[in-house]
Design a protein around this nucleic acid. Structure first.
Lengths: 256, 256
DNA sequence: CGACACGTTGAGATATATCAAACGTGGTGG
DNA sequence: CCACCACGTTTGATATATCTCAACGTGTCG
């Protein structure tokens, strides 16, 4: 699959025209270094943030300072629309790798909204998908055992990236260490390491410093009890994924 | 605190005038019996649903049919705005006790939106708070141990109900069994029972068939590592809660 | 009365956390 | 070039949390 820019690759949400409208109202880009904090919980937020490049993690800390990621944003995402609309954010945000943000001041977005209401509707859709992802994270952590949690999360990354044309179905790269994986899946880094070892030994997938290779996608999905209905992919994308999984599966079967 | 209708009791979101506008476009009420399914995952949704009376649980099932609640709606909530805007829902919904819903057909809500745009903004805010609650659920299940998870969730119920004038700070009633509590907190009913027993033995709170009495609110909040910033309460409400907790605390201290 | 939900309790199995040490690997300074 | 360190990962041993299964109680309702 050819690489596309994020704006082209999400046909069920923003058209290229709308994407241009959005980028026209954006202020100059802001750069962040890996691991730099972008936003602290409870701080005021005056701009909507478009993630032009890189990956951003949302998290809360418990009393002991231990971190739980509550969301992960990919290139092309609109960051934390909740924080923007509520004027303050309920969780902190860190850059995972190098990050480029393009902020849109509130007034400009409002102006664009009156001029182009369909666009605001699409922002609604985007934030509703974010909410659905949040709900799926609850399900993942609440009902799945460690091994399945890891597999399930990696499946989500795969599908979200694939839906934007940012990877193929055999793997992807994301600036996550094992400790991040642990803080995403609600477990200990040691346990995450062991679960990854199991998946590796079973020949299902490998994870080395954020580079994920998926050898057996079907088993991966099954191990993770994964479904992607909640991502609201375009029907074509969904069908395409199903067909490619079916093809992979039978090929593996044919090979023994 | 005197009982108020939900519409009066949420001053930071809908004014009584706006509430009347909303109820004017609603279709006749629909009644559901306890434990009746309101919506199945993946079904189409053509109306926004206002929860006029009762409690509704959102959930997903894993492959083995085990349920994980991913959200809980109180009287006065707008149900599953995500499902409405995305035209299909990503999770199922059950009535917990007896429930009264008032649906608003899509066209009527759209019409109201063009006529009264501030009202749509407030719906945005409501759904952004829902999303923040979802994120907090991830944090709760991901980072807290069983006992804290239970206490934390009960604190959330208390604060959400109190903010609407539906209870006082010493307890509340909600149509939840222990098994529901378990499916909310991502644990086994047996374990939920034991954690409740601990809280009871420590004199912190009791839970008997959905009737929650809180004897030591301060310890409850501490045990649950609870913070309620993510609920975006009105500043007055927030201050009032803090003052009443401080008062309770010192009274307990004075009594020994 | 019996059937049936729901809650409690106990015993044992399993999953996960904790602590500590060893291991690699890339950078840095001598 | 090597020695060294910082960092992330792996491994082992043990503790703790949580699950599972099974039994028992208790109330409700036909």
């Amino acid at each position: 699959m050819a690489a596309m820019t994020p704006d082209q690759a999400w046909p069920d949400v923003f058209t290229p025209f709308e994407a241009r409208l959005l980028s026209a109202v954006q202020a100059p880009a802001i750069e962040f270094r890996p691991r730099q904090q972008i936003l602290r919980r409870d701080t005021m937020q005056h701009s909507a943030l478009y993630l032009a490049r890189g990956y951003v993690g949302l998290y809360r800390l418990d009393r002991l300072g231990r971190r739980q990621f509550v969301g992960l944003h990919l290139p092309g995402d609109h960051l934390d629309l909740a924080g923007f609309f509520m004027a303050r954010s309920d969780c902190s945000m860190d850059a995972l790798g190098a990050v480029t943000l393009r902020p849109t001041p509130r007034e400009r977005l409002d102006a664009l909204g009156t001029q182009e209401p369909a666009l605001i509707d699409k922002l609604w859709r985007v934030s509703m998908i974010d909410a659905a992802i949040n709900r799926y994270w609850i399900f993942r952590i609440g009902r799945l055992v460690g091994r399945a949690r890891i597999a399930n999360f990696l499946c989500e990354m795969l599908m979200r990236l694939y839906a934007r044309g940012l990877c193929d179905l055999d793997g992807f790269d994301v600036p996550l260490a094992q400790i991040d994986l642990a803080e995403i899946c609600g477990m200990t880094p040691v346990h995450a390491s062991r679960m990854l070892a199991e998946l590796r030994e079973d020949g299902i997938c490998t994870f080395v410093q954020g580079s994920v290779r998926i050898m057996k996608l079907r088993e991966m999905i099954q191990t993770g009890h994964y479904r992607w209905d909640y991502l609201y992919l375009a029907p074509e994308t969904d069908r395409e994924i199903r067909e490619r999984i079916a093809a992979k599966g039978s090929r593996h079967f044919a090979l023994g």
